[in-house]
């Protein structure tokens, strides 16, 4: 078959879909804005619930990609023209491609934690994000504070930039709770003498094995959970961070000094995705993620025929869900091509 499928975004959703298309004999053009594939997952360390190394997922996905797949790195879409059932895409590398179908798998951006001014990210050195922590784990170096000390107390702050009207994102980012518990366990494994705390509003341990992770965190690793959203973070002269939250379970405000505070930053729709949606004429909902045509029966079809979506560009998803969504999109695309 000579029909060509264009996929925008080569994170795990794009890679999985590309592999499926190529299995079925289609040729694929994969457009990627960075200089390598793998999206956000390529930056993670170990993923929940079973601590599988993220690198393993990426390399398995890469190994399924064949020669039918052509990747344009550091390339973006400049312009889109729809004509007679085909899409003409003008790329930033001055090339033009023509495609009957386009699959958008542009993913997400992490919430910019400096928008939560009261948490002092970017101002207080010992306030870091979950992404920073994954980076530290990947580096293999021992975990140290900004003053090169071994942390005795680490706090994980849930719901940063999610479920937050002031931050502009009312939705729940879903996976950060499970991720936080996993990171807490990993931190305790690296720093066995440290006290690890989690400041949460609700614990969304929604998927299989997540509740086990929570139980293990408490029973085996002694991680303590404090139900209270962080109100403010301040800094002591020695660089340690003072956290203030309401201990809602005992009904009193609580103050705690920690050596390091890790902000669990949530998903936001990427600015470029919103821009791309406008170029293709597909709808974006109030939460700024792309709006598929149906919330139950079809999460991969948009209001534009021939334009399909998969992965986190339609909302927060775990890795397993993203891959399943990518496969589902692949079937929709192939059905569309075969029926036309």
């Amino acid at each position: 078959m000579s029909k060509q499928i264009t996929i925008i975004g080569s994170g795990i959703a794009g890679m999985e879909a590309a592999a499926k298309f190529s299995e079925m004999g289609y040729s694929v053009i994969l457009i990627e804005k960075e200089n390598k594939m793998g999206g956000h997952v390529s930056k993670w360390h170990n993923v929940f619930p079973d601590y599988k190394p993220a690198k393993e997922i990426i390399s398995k996905l890469k190994s399924t990609l064949t020669k039918n797949i052509k990747v344009f790195y550091e390339t973006e879409i400049e312009n889109v023209v729809a004509l007679d059932g085909k899409y003409y895409l003008q790329l930033s590398n001055s090339q033009n491609i023509e495609s009957e179908v386009v699959l958008i798998t542009t993913g997400f951006e992490l919430f910019n934690a400096s928008k939560k001014e009261e948490y002092g990210f970017g101002i207080y050195e010992n306030v870091i994000t979950s992404a920073n922590l994954e980076e530290k784990f990947n580096s293999g170096r021992p975990i140290k504070t900004s003053r090169d000390a071994t942390p005795k107390r680490v706090a994980f702050i849930h719901c940063v930039g999610s479920r937050d009207e002031k931050a502009g994102n009312k939705y729940c980012s879903k996976v950060c709770c499970a991720n936080a518990v996993k990171l807490a366990i990993e931190t305790k494994q690296l720093l066995p003498d440290a006290e690890i705390y989690s400041f949460y509003m609700d614990l969304r341990m929604f998927d299989r094995y997540f509740e086990d992770l929570y139980f293990e965190a408490q029973s085996k690793y002694g991680i303590r959970f404090i139900r209270g959203r962080l109100s403010e973070a301040c800094e002591n002269p020695d660089g340690t961070i003072i956290l203030k939250a309401e201990d809602t379970l005992s009904g009193k405000p609580l103050k705690m000094t920690v050596d390091m505070a890790v902000l669990m930053v949530g998903f936001t729709s990427s600015v470029k995705t919103i821009d791309l949606a406008a170029k293709f004429g597909i709808s974006v909902d109030n939460d700024k993620f792309i709006k598929p045509l149906d919330n139950h029966l079809n999460l991969n079809i948009t209001n534009q025929p021939g334009i399909f979506v998969a992965g986190a560009c339609t909302g927060p998803k775990s890795i397993a869900e993203t891959l399943a969504d990518a496969r589902s999109a692949a079937i929709q695309v192939i059905n569309y091509l075969q029926s036309n």
């Binding site: 408490q218 005992s250 405000p253 103050k255 000094t257």
Partner: peptide, 26 residues
């Protein structure tokens, strides 16, 4: 101050109870 000063409070009682009955931490 009504605030729970976590740094000043002692969790000695908690640790003793955990020692006797570890499921307390769950």
């Amino acid at each position: 101050d009504n605030q729970i000063d976590f740094d000043k409070n002692s969790r000695g009682l908690m640790l003793q109870i955990l020692n006797i009955e570890p499921t307390f931490g769950n």
